[in-house]
Amino acid sequence: MDIDLIINSFPKLLTASLITLKLLLVSLIIGVFLGLFFAILRMSKNIFVKQFAYGYSYIFRGTPLLVQIFIIYFGLAQLEWLKKSVLWVILKDPYWCAIIAFSLNSGAYTSEILRSAFQTIHTSMIEAGKSLGISNKIIFYKIQIPIAIRQSLPAYGNEMILMMKGTSLASTVTLMDITGVAQKIISTTFKPIEVFIIAGSIYLFMTFCINKFIKLLEKKYNF
């Protein structure tokens, strides 16, 4: 056990955890909106809209996240018209490519979580709203969405942890997140165990915080 290496690499990994956190937060926030959007599409009566939303979640849940990142980062750079467009400002940056891939992936899982939450809402709640003369729109925003969000909290906590682990793939597109820095230190020092202990503890600490956060929310919005 190399204590010096542990002490030396701790600050490096800690600063790298900022990138991991940034990737995680931004993609989770975009993912929630995408998820809500596609969950609403899934409930549409139009068969094409429904199929489109289903196809989106099926494709992103059925392929590895690594494939998705590689298509966006390496694949899209090949399209000449895209390179000339304004979008290229975003797509040439590995950071934004990772965020796009993570958000789309998280959106697919979140849409499934929210969809099943919407389905578990008892029809009596909606009927109660209707009999009180509340409009459909208000019922949706004030009754269905809050209940669905509360219902999906435990499953969403798992999704947050999965996404946190997913951000490690950003290291494959040259981003220096915790895993990226850890891999660099390992390949220069050949001491994987020491580095794994620190990097692993940082990740575990983040998992712990996410768990506590979700428990807190569950308690707060208990009914």
Binding site: K165, G166, T167, S168, L169, T179, F196, A199, G200, Y203
Partner: peptide, 10 residues
């Protein structure tokens, strides 16, 4: 709680 990639590197 730890990314798969990290376990693989280890």
């Amino acid at each position: 709680g730890v990314p798969e990639l990290l376990v693989i590197y280890l």
